[in-house]
Simulated assay, not measured.
Amino acid sequence: MTKKTKWSIDQAHSDITFKVRHLMIAHVKGSFKTFDANIYTYGKDFATAEIDVWIDASSITTGDTDRDEHLKALDFLDVKNHKQITFVASTIGKMDEKNMHELWGELTIVGIKQNVKLDVEFGGLLKDPWGNERAGFSVTGKIKRADWGLTWNTALETGGIMVGDDIAITCDIEVTNVGFEDLKMELDNAKE
């Protein structure tokens, strides 16, 4: 009988943020406030992790209500028709000497799937003061919004554009070990 470990995101100690160039001279930062994931590993080896993340697209916030409403509208995330942004991991590279992994997977935004590479720094594994086993990760990457058809923009009188194409992603994630899940049923089904 094979078992795998289930990990739960600690919402109070995790965030998903992004940054994009604005007016060619500065950056706008934002975050998604509602997200979760199914995360499983064999034992405690995160190189074996199965990761399925979902983000509530309507939870986007940049600190400006008008801008947030525009980002939720048809020009960008179209949250009425595309409620979730998802990421499903496909490959996790071995950890290098700097505790970094390459994480590959499918990122789906506005219904369009694209394969992306993210960099993951493993922060460590420990027991907290209450006896819970926890692990921490920093995930970073850069995507081009045009790859998902998100091309809305405005030309500036002085040249250039209002919104850059490159989106820098940073996720700080803390997970808690919530126990084992029996894989016997899953393995039995695979044999049929």
Rank of each mutant, 00 (worst) to 15 (best):
M1Q: 15
K3S: 15
S8I: 11
D10Q: 10
Q11G: 13
Q11W: 07
S14T: 14
F18H: 02
V20L: 09
R21K: 11
K33H: 07
D36R: 07
D36G: 15
A37Q: 12
Y40H: 12
G43M: 03
A47G: 08
A49F: 03
S58Q: 11
S59T: 13
D64L: 11
D64C: 07
D64F: 09
D66I: 11
R67I: 12
R67T: 14
H70D: 13
F76W: 15
Q84F: 00
A89C: 09
K94C: 00
K94E: 10
H101R: 10
L107P: 09
V116G: 09
K117F: 02
E121M: 15
F122A: 14
L126P: 01
D128Q: 05
D128R: 03
D128E: 05
W130D: 00
G136D: 06
F137G: 09
S138P: 03
T140V: 15
K142Q: 13
I143L: 11
D147G: 02
G149K: 05
W152Y: 15
E157D: 13
E157P: 15
T158L: 07
G159P: 04
G160F: 05
G164R: 05
I169Q: 00
I173Y: 09
I173R: 11
E174T: 14
T176L: 13
E181S: 12
K184I: 06
N189L: 13
